[in-house]
């Protein structure tokens, strides 16, 4: 397995400080502290309803935090909208496939590279002349293995292909910090093995935070794991130590983590 990542001394790529989030009177996230080093692959696991997706929604700016702070490369994200956070170098994928169904696979990816390449809202440039955008989109297609499906409508892809496209859109902009929300959800074993390879490939040199239920995926990808239970992180450690952690075992009601838990 990977060597334990050193604890951050300087500013972490992503840092959560006493983050809390309430919806009405219900507190979903109850004081989460987390520091993720640059280049680290970090998995967030936990039983259903633990608040994993909410945590992602807070980080990516879909919701604002109730109290506490989230820092990206040392900069506070408070009050920033999703697109502003994205421009600062954080991209996310979604648990439920979230693509542009009526656009071709290629167009899906190209849309995701336009803003970072500086084309923004321009309506005086023809897309076909944007060599760098087209080249980059084709590179991403190659990387995610959808080159053959380049001109197919995204809505017509198979489920596994749509999940790969989902990851492709997320990484296409070249963000340094990538959040993946259950990237292998609903996949067969062989599909999720491929997905793991894909994630490994596309996140080289980047910081990855992922929510995942499939424990084999988690243990094969993650440098460190955080266990979220009822809105609190009960443990953050390297995979081997998480596996033996008594509190974690209890949270999963005695199921063996190695076999996967839901």
């Amino acid at each position: 397995m990977n060597a334990p990542a050193p604890m951050p001394v300087i500013a972490a790529a992503l840092e959560l400080r006493a983050v809390r989030k309430s919806f009405g009177v219900t507190e979903i996230i109850r004081g989460v502290d987390l520091a993720i080093t640059k280049g680290e692959r970090h998995a967030v696991i936990g039983p259903n309803g633990a608040g994993k997706s909410t945590l992602f929604n807070l980080i990516s700016g879909r919701f604002g935090v109730s109290t506490g702070a989230i820092l990206l490369n040392g900069g506070d994200l408070a009050g920033l909208k999703p697109f502003e956070i994205n421009r600062k170098g954080l991209a996310r994928s979604f648990q439920i496939t979230n693509i542009f169904a009526n656009l071709s696979v290629f167009e899906n990816i190209r849309c995701a590279v336009l803003y970072p390449l500086g084309y923004k809202y321009s309506f005086w440039k023809a897309l076909s002349t944007l060599k760098d955008a087209n080249l980059r989109a084709d590179e991403i297609l190659e990387l995610i293995g959808l080159k053959k499906r380049r001109d197919v409508k995204a809505g017509l892809l198979t489920y596994a292909e749509q999940r790969a496209l989902e990851i492709g859109i997320t990484i296409a902009g070249g963000a340094e910090v990538i959040l993946l929300d259950e990237p292998t959800a609903g996949m067969s074993r062989s599909e999720s093995d491929q997905a793991v390879e894909l994630i490994r490939k596309v996140t080289v040199g980047k910081t990855l935070v992922m929510v995942e239920h499939d424990m084999s995926v988690v243990f094969s990808l993650a440098d460190r794991i955080s266990v979220l239970v009822y809105g609190e992180v009960i443990a953050t450690d390297v995979p081997e130590k998480i596996r033996g952690n008594a509190a974690v075992q209890e949270a999963y009601l005695g199921t063996s983590l190695a076999e996967g838990a839901h």
């Binding site: 990516s60 909208k81 999703p82 697109f83 994205n86 421009r87 991209a91 996310r92 979604f94 979230n98 693509i99 542009f100 169904a101 009526n102 656009l103 167009e107 190209r110 849309c111 995701a112 336009l114 803003y115 970072p116 084309y119 923004k120 809202y121 321009s122 309506f123 005086w124 440039k125 023809a126 897309l127 076909s128 944007l130 859109i169 296409a172 902009g173």
Partner: peptide
């Protein structure tokens, strides 16, 4: 066939996702 024109299509298909690719 311009960046804005294409992103407009993306907004039509899925406005939420557009916010997460920088627009």
């Amino acid at each position: 066939h311009t960046p804005l024109g294409r992103i407009a299509n993306a907004v039509r298909d899925n406005p939420e996702r557009v916010e997460f690719i920088g627009y």
